[in-house]
């Protein structure tokens, strides 16, 4: 797949000149390399693959996607369901 798991950045530090962080996956923590996500700050969520953060998870996009799913259902209930409803966030 590329098994990528969301985790929360707890503490950022430098190890041998590389930006590293402790990332919390929900009760377990792991040291993760932040070299590829200079924008990530403590408190951000990131996707971790093979010990590397590969992106900052965008909360606004996530909420927008979920809102879009919920709206699909509301349209359905109102009897306005349309197979051509365009997708939300892209």
């Amino acid at each position: 797949m590329c098994l990528g798991v969301p985790g929360k950045v707890l503490e950022v530090r430098s190890e041998q000149g590389t930006r590293m962080a402790t990332v919390d996956f929900g009760g377990v923590t792991k040291t993760v390399c932040l070299a590829y996500v200079p924008e990530v700050q403590e408190g951000d969520y990131t996707i971790v693959h093979a010990g590397f953060a590969i992106t900052r998870l965008d909360e606004a996009s996530a909420l927008e996607t979920l809102r879009m799913f919920t709206e699909l259902g509301m349209l359905d209930e109102l009897g306005e369901a349309d197979a051509g409803v365009p997708g939300g966030a892209t």
């Binding site: 098994l3 798991v5 985790g7 996956f25 929900g26 009760g27 377990v28 792991k30 971790v48």
Partner: peptide, 13 residues
């Protein structure tokens, strides 16, 4: 399944 077990299983696959 405790949350931490689920989390560890998540990142270890």
């Amino acid at each position: 399944v405790p949350e931490a077990v689920r989390a560890a299983c998540g990142f270890l696959g």
